[in-house]
Nucleic acid binder design. Structure first.
Length: 556
RNA sequence: GCCUCCGUAGCUCAGGGGAUAGAGCAACUGCCUUCUAAGCAGUGGGCCACAGGUUCGAUUCCUGUCGGGGGCGCCA
């Protein structure tokens, strides 16, 4: 990679100068080489001279001179300049752009991937919706975010496991309410005048589940005791919900490697065991009939209950057991992707992990901010219990998987996301996903034209690329060359929106190129070179959209 | 009260220790006999909330203030 090569040259230049005694500094600084916003400042620029100035005890521009006088990079650098307060701007030989295109053509679908992860085992846990209702729109953001973070890390050479934690503890209040709700609907479906329980789940889908149970089993459960019936229904309904969730997520382009049941942690004794471990390690104690995690020892505001005075373990106890299990499975990095209502759980979860003797820095918790639904400028309320949820499946049916994913991924996870249903449903041209996909369709159209005219598309490595020199061509190649860096930065920072942004930028640059530079023209040499360029753009766009889980249509 | 995210163009949001702060939408003006006009080019529009601090340099980092979203259970 050209950037690394240049950075290495600068480092060598500095160490050489130091050896000669021309300059003196302590540690070699991290060389920051970036693509300047303004093309008039060259292909790459570095602030190394300014960073070193103080330590070296000379003015930045003088340091820059020292760097340049010891630089041996004539093979790639055409010229350099010292600018402004001490920037060094590099103007590379045009062949670096040709090399970039050749690399894309050679690597194809692999372009953008790397091995920085070196097979490190990493687990991404996301969505983890309760198994007592369908996946709704608010889960969509977590689903898209976790999925694309996983894809990016995988592209970076990490060994990624996508995991869904199923909060199916049968003794939990929410599962019991769910079971009671299904039971009430079952009785109603059989014609009984039966009241809904307190805090019932009101959604239509509960009625559907009850009807399905009636259809399949009739009234045979009436012979059971009420408790037995509720337990049976909880199980049946949970299974049905899990299947539905799997299907809805699959339709959204998300597949999990592991569906991890909380209940198994209780049944296998891992929850009880983790409490014992915490007690042994001195981080759990009993007080007023309950067992407490001493999370304050790790910076939490207050200690948290692990076991209630009625003997039931809390969610935190199960979660501690779950995270211990994750680390015991050998993951070297564990990522939890949670909604904004969980931010208060970061401190206690990390505390639990630390109390168990695991390294809390191996646990990264991503909190994505709220999704708010708007329909015609009005905010749509979303309450699961009240039953007025908007389902992810409905959204996907209305706007399609591609648009839905792109919308969810466009914004930084730190920002709220306002999802305008009307806009998304209207399939409006404002939708940026069309803009990006259109660029790909146009590329394919050019390639079809070439085929039609009997002009073979030659790979960039086997084509004379010197005819490329138009401003629009140059900026397109530069953008294509950036892609691997973008994937690395977005992936390591867990920031999928950088990738959607990249796609939009690339599409914009391509559309400009398309308007300014006719590919299938009179000059065969130019046509060949542009075809190679366009084909490289196709590869990069496909790879980028592929990481986002969004299709790259060849016609629109 | 405590925690957390946000505050950048009319709107929705990117960016981010550095050289003239960006995109989309909205407004206005041009561009289709030629590879898809779901496109392109151009114009207007900004005390980057405010006040201190760190720095050679702050819109960016730190502290505080103000404003907005969300969260603070022996619920999950």
């Amino acid at each position: 990679m050209i950037r690394e090569k240049l950075a290495e040259s600068i480092r060598r230049s500095l160490t050489d100068a130091q050896t000669e005694g021309v300059i003196s500094f302590g540690m070699l600084p991290e060389i920051e080489l970036e693509v300047p916003k303004n093309t008039q400042f060259g292909d790459f620029t570095t602030n190394a001279a300014m960073v070193l100035a103080k330590e070296a005890g000379m003015p930045p521009r003088k340091v820059a001179e020292v760097i340049l006088s010891h630089l041996h990079a004539q093979d790639i650098v055409e010229r350099t300049e010292i600018a402004g307060p001490g920037f060094i701007n590099f103007y590379l030989k045009p062949t670096w752009l040709h090399d970039a295109l050749c690399r894309i053509a050679t690597q194809g679908a692999q372009y953008g991937r790397s091995d920085v992860g070196q097979g490190t085992r990493i687990q991404v846990e996301f969505v983890s919706a309760n198994p007592n209702g369908p996946i709704h729109v608010a889960h969509g953001r977590g689903a898209a975010t976790g999925d694309v973070i996983s894809s990016m890390l995988s592209a970076l050479g990490f060994d990624v496991t996508r995991e869904f934690y199923v909060n199916d503890a049968v003794n939990s209040k929410q599962m019991q309410n769910f079971g009671k709700s299904v039971h009430a609907r079952y009785m109603q479906a059989l014609g009984h005048d039966f009241p809904m329980p307190e805090d019932a789940y009101q959604g239509e889908y509960v009625i559907d589940i009850a009807k399905d149970i009636v259809k399949e089993y009739g009234d045979r459960f009436l012979s059971m005791s009420v408790e037995e019936r509720i337990r049976t229904f909880t199980d049946l309904a949970k299974e049905q919900m899990l299947e539905l969730q799997k299907k809805d997520l699959a339709d959204f382009g998300v597949k999990f490697d592991v569906w991890f049941s909380e209940q198994t942690l209780h049944e296998s004794g891992k929850v009880a065991r983790v409490i014992e471990i915490l007690k042994e390690r001195g981080y759990a104690y009993e007080k007023s009939g309950a067992v407490w995690l001493k999370s304050t020892a790790f910076g939490d505001d207050k200690d948290r209950a692990l076991v209630r005075s009625n003997g039931q373990p809390t969610y935190i106890a199960a979660d501690a057991a779950y995270h211990l299990d994750k680390f015991n499975r050998g993951f070297e990095k564990v990522i939890d992707c949670w909604g904004p209502d969980h931010h208060g759980y970061i401190a206690r979860t990390k505390a639990a992990v630390a109390a168990l003797g695991c390294d809390p820095s191996k646990l990264d918790i991503i909190i994505y901010q709220a999704v708010r639904l708007f329909a015609g400028g009005e905010m749509v309320m979303m309450s699961k219990r009240a039953g007025d949820v908007v389902l992810l499946s409905e959204l996907v049916a209305e706007v399609g998987k591609d648009a839905a994913r792109f919308f969810f991924l466009m914004r930084s996870t730190d920002s709220n996301l306002d999802f305008d249903l009307e806009l998304a449903k209207s399939q409006s041209n404002d939708n940026p996903v069309y803009y990006v996909q259109y660029a790909h369709a146009r590329i394919c159209s050019i390639l079809r034209k070439a085929e039609e005219m009997g002009v073979p598309v030659r790979r960039a490595c086997d084509t004379d690329l010197t005819p490329l020199g138009h401003e629009a061509e140059i900026s397109l190649i530069k953008k294509l060359a950036e892609f691997p860096d973008t994937v690395a930065e977005a992936g390591l920072a867990y920031e999928p929106h950088r990738l959607t942004r990249y796609c939009q930028d690339l599409a914009a640059i391509f559309h400009t190129f398309y308007t300014e530079c006719r590919v299938m023209g009179e000059d065969p040499a130019l046509t060949n070179a542009r075809l190679a360029l366009v084909d490289s753009a196709r590869i990069v766009l496909q790879n980028a959209l592929g990481l986002l889980g969004i299709s790259a249509p060849s016609t629109m």
